[in-house]
Amino acid sequence: MSLDKATVAKIAHLARIKVPDDELDHLAGELSQILTFVEQLGEVDTQDVPPMTSVAAQTLRRRKDEVTDGGYRDAVLSNGPETAEGFYVVPKVVE
């Protein structure tokens, strides 16, 4: 699979990573090379093979419905680049 510039720009946008225009071509080449490499999987017969979610041979463990966490707003906010009045702050979002 060969990715073109436009596709790379689209993926970069989906991933919210700014990629300078002049890097798109090079990146498209690299990503295409990786995709070509992984496409050898097409050779493997996977008919009726269940896709693996986890290698851990167990089922989902559950916790009790008890409040055991939270209640430490300062700790939660202490690393925030911008906070005010107990909130995280970001540029205005228009809905």
């Binding site: 999987l41 493997v44 996977t46 093979v49 269940p50 896709p51 693996m52 290698v55």
Partner: peptide
């Protein structure tokens, strides 16, 4: 084509 296929091959590797 990619992710699910890879998960299936992963099963075969296991």
């Amino acid at each position: 084509a990619y992710y699910n296929k890879a998960r299936q091959v992963r099963t075969r590797i296991k």
